[in-house]
Simulated assay, not measured.
Amino acid sequence: MVNGGRGRAHLCGVQTAWSQLARAEDAVAEVAAAIDGTRVAQLLVFFSPSYGAEAMSAALARRFPGIGVAGCTSSGEISPAGGLDRGLVVVAFPREGFRVVSTVLTGVEQLDVEEAVASVRTLRMRLDMAGEGCAQRFAISLIDGLTLAEERVTSAVAFGLDAIPLVGGSAGDALTVSDTALIHDGQVHHGAAILLIVATDHPIEVFKTDNLEPQAVKFVVTQTDAENRTVRELNAEPAAAEYARALGLQPEMLTPTVFAANPLAVRVGGDYFCRSIHRLNPDGSLSFLCAVDEGVVLTLAGRKDLVTTTRDELARLDAALGGLDLVIGFDCVLRRLDAELHQVRHRLSDLYRRYNVIGFETCGEQYRAIHLNHTFTGIAIGALPRA
Results as ranks from 00 to 15, higher is better:
5 G>K: 02
9 A>D: 05
15 Q>F: 08
28 V>W: 08
28 V>S: 03
30 E>Q: 14
33 A>T: 02
34 A>Y: 02
37 G>C: 07
37 G>A: 14
38 T>S: 15
41 A>P: 00
47 F>M: 04
50 S>A: 14
52 G>S: 09
58 A>E: 14
59 A>E: 09
63 R>N: 02
70 A>Y: 01
77 E>N: 08
81 A>G: 09
87 G>L: 05
93 F>E: 07
96 E>F: 06
97 G>T: 09
99 R>V: 12
101 V>W: 09
107 G>Q: 11
112 D>N: 15
115 E>P: 04
115 E>T: 14
119 S>P: 00
126 R>P: 01
128 D>T: 11
129 M>R: 15
130 A>T: 06
133 G>D: 07
136 Q>F: 02
138 F>T: 08
141 S>K: 04
143 I>R: 03
148 L>C: 10
151 E>R: 13
156 A>I: 01
158 A>Y: 11
161 L>G: 04
162 D>L: 06
169 G>K: 03
170 S>F: 00
173 D>H: 05
176 T>P: 06
177 V>T: 00
177 V>N: 06
179 D>V: 00
190 H>G: 09
200 T>V: 12
200 T>H: 09
203 P>A: 14
206 V>K: 00
207 F>W: 05
207 F>N: 01
208 K>W: 14
209 T>R: 05
211 N>W: 02
219 F>R: 09
220 V>E: 15
221 V>C: 11
231 V>K: 01
231 V>Y: 10
237 E>T: 04
237 E>G: 03
242 E>L: 00
246 A>C: 08
247 L>A: 12
250 Q>I: 08
252 E>A: 14
252 E>R: 13
258 V>E: 13
259 F>T: 10
260 A>N: 03
260 A>M: 11
266 V>L: 14
271 D>H: 11
272 Y>A: 07
281 N>R: 15
282 P>Y: 06
284 G>Y: 08
303 R>Q: 12
310 T>S: 12
310 T>C: 13
313 E>R: 15
314 L>C: 10
314 L>N: 08
321 L>M: 02
322 G>Y: 02
334 L>K: 06
337 L>E: 00
338 D>M: 00
344 V>F: 04
346 H>Q: 14
347 R>P: 00
352 Y>I: 06
355 Y>R: 06
356 N>T: 10
356 N>I: 00
359 G>Y: 01
360 F>C: 10
364 G>D: 09
365 E>W: 11
371 H>M: 12
381 I>M: 06
383 A>V: 10
384 L>S: 13
387 A>E: 13
